[in-house]
Design a protein around this nucleic acid. Structure first.
Lengths: 235, 235, 235, 235
DNA sequence: GATGAATGAGAGTTCATTCAT
DNA sequence: GATGAATGAACTCTCATTCAT
């Protein structure tokens, strides 16, 4: 993953497919034989990660405005000033952190993985339902919450979320809808034209569970399955 | 509606079952009230309203943390200090303003207004669809956005929103679902058990349109009508 | 008593000996037969007194800086603005109030009242000891406390206190010391030269009791009597 | 002396009976301590001292309420915000500053230092009289003044003053009075029961000189000596 | 006279950001 | 790289004083 960062905030995230960039051979954490003067790249990466982790926690807990850089530094176990070596501003830190999470927030409905002959509905049940049932695990819903809450101040983040999470999801749903239409599973192109019809329970569920009624959470997975039932007409 | 406000922020909103408070027959308070010295209550009310209006705009535009009292004052055309005669703290101002909007945010689906013999589905189309199509007018969706965005810092507001907007809506949907089941319009109690099934497009639409994809808004009304179609099985 | 007040603070207090300035004849609070338009002088005087009383209480309780004009107004039962009709500034109000109390704070040791042939020591025991035992009643010590506490900000008050309370007292003590020397009650002029020798227990007592050790107050009267014993050599 | 300071203001001062803390024989801490990165502790200590000095001056000159943090900062040559790195609030700054002065304000009448066979009176003349003549030097009387003036707002300070200055002084006087009684120097236990009898001129002198009559200061030392004369009956 | 809404300077406090070490 | 003291702008809130009514 390669972050190209300009002065304020973030602009580009190029998903680098390269796995195993560093130290291919020779195993796990072998103590470096010859140490250069000063800090090693590994140490730097670790420091950066510590900062990002601490920042993520704080931002999720308190939101942007109520998170203090000093607190992040303390939580990361580094000095305040050091954060500014890695991130030019608080905004940039926030963006980087959230952006990184967004990348992890993909709902991995890869329609290419549909088996030959598998019905669209079956495929959706097999993959998406599982994913959705787990949506509240990890920070997927949390990150959606933060993007929603801070979106007004960070349009770039919303843009990224849209581009990296929302749009791909919509495209996949549309492709599946098209396939379902062609195979006769669906009788019309309503879902193709309105892919949100399928996804509505997800957003609604996040809103209800994360914001409006934490005490009485809805079962997003169940809701989604019912939606699936209705769309595929199991009346 | 009777607001009981304590020092910091808001606490209670007692929905007064006010039946015909106005017009106490003829007299007592008929002739213009004895004018007190000093500023007139009308002027005071206007000032207060100016503050509230300015505050609402600012809060909607910038969120709580990024709104400065001084800016609100300037926008309202009053001095900074005056705001504190009307609201004890910035929090209290925010709460009052948002709370007032919440009260206006009712989706007025009064199931009692269903005409005798009218089918539940028809009733919903006749009332809710219209309301929903207008949901993005005014600040209904905006206020939902603010409640969502600032909810973490103002749990009391979320509570009010839930109590005054969300729960009543859910109850009405449940009553209608029950009626539909009994009249045979619906064959099962899925909607009764999951009233969110009907409302999901609303929350999803707000999230999409207000937060995630302002450039490609979904048609919440249309989405809702399709949901209605599916629920009432117009396959 | 005639207060001549200039813009800021106080300058002069001319003790007007005139008793019964107003309404000499005709009895107590007879309802005025013909009322002039507007407020009567009596009402005005009452209002002023209400303000002064309220202010005194507040100033004694909280000190100058921590007393709010609005609180004084509320306590006096008048509007905030009205206070500024009677006193030009908060400082002026404070001065007037404290000054009035200072005038009442005289320790009335009028050496002219010493009976013919009465020994100085006996006179002092007869008059001053009684006064001192009562010093903590009323607000005599309280007012000393306020003068001490706020003296840095109100040198004029200190000046008045010195002129109206301290100096006269010293003069009387000196006259009495002289008389005692001449009558042989005292063998030297130590007291004449150091009148504070007699008064030290008073100031010390106020400091201890009002400021430093409220929990273990000293008996100022007893202390003073012992001082008297020692000075007049009852070894 | 060990100051334990909690968040707001001060609470405890534990007088550590430190016997020879310094010079731990030879080593451990001999070679210059490993220099940490960033600002040196020495610099920090200097800054703190600059703040404390500036604050003391300002508080003595203007009292608590009329001292602005910004002015203190300017006088100390630092930025306003920096003060809050050293002291959490204005109150805490005030407390720390005054408390530090109180510690220096001891009247060091250590009765244990009375030489064998030395008469109590002689001891007092030899030690206390000297101290008292110097009482107005330094800020001993000044600090008493501030404690008195601000005591109402800072009961904790008064308490400290009482505990660290007043009570020890009283105890020593009582012990000396007892010794004098036993050795026959004093014929009764008046002084033992009323130690303030000896100290009255000190408090009185401070009040007169610092508050009530700066123009005509009394000679506290002389007054105290006369008191001594009278108590030990040199009539 | 009387009211209390309105003003606005000023105070305490926070915190992102910089920089000497 | 790393530290955390130092900066200063910005913000919330207070309150003496004014003034339209």
């Amino acid at each position: 993953m390669c972050h190209i960062q300009n002065r304020k905030g973030l602009t580009l995230v190029l998903p680098a497919k390269s796995r195993m960039d560093r130290k291919p051979k020779l195993a796990l954490r072998d103590k470096p034989v010859v140490r250069r003067r000063g800090t090693s790249p590994e140490k730097t990466a670790l420091t950066r990660q510590a900062i990002v982790d601490a920042a993520l926690s704080e931002f999720l807990e308190r939101g942007f405005a109520n998170t203090a850089i000093e607190t992040v530094a303390k939580r990361a176990g580094v000095a305040k000033g050091l954060i500014y070596r890695y991130f030019t501003t608080k905004e940039a830190l926030f963006s980087a952190v959230v952006q990184q999470e967004i990348v992890n927030a993909h709902l991995d409905v890869d329609d290419a993985k549909r088996k030959a002959g598998e019905k669209v509905e079956d495929f959706l049940r097999r993959t998406l339902v599982v994913t959705i049932h787990a949506i509240e695990k990890k920070s997927r819903a949390e990150i959606a919450r933060v993007v929603i809450a801070e979106g007004a101040r960070f349009p770039a983040l919303v843009e990224i979320y849209r581009r990296d999470v929302l749009d791909p999801l919509l495209q996949r749903v549309k492709r599946l809808a098209l396939a379902a239409k062609q195979s006769g599973e669906l009788s019309d192109d309503r879902l193709y034209k309105n892919p949100h019809l399928l996804l509505a329970p997800i957003w609604a569920g996040i809103v209800i569970n994360k914001f409006l009624d934490r005490a009485n959470p809805v079962d997003i997975g169940a809701l989604f399955e019912m939606q699936l039932d209705m769309i595929f007409a199991k009346a």
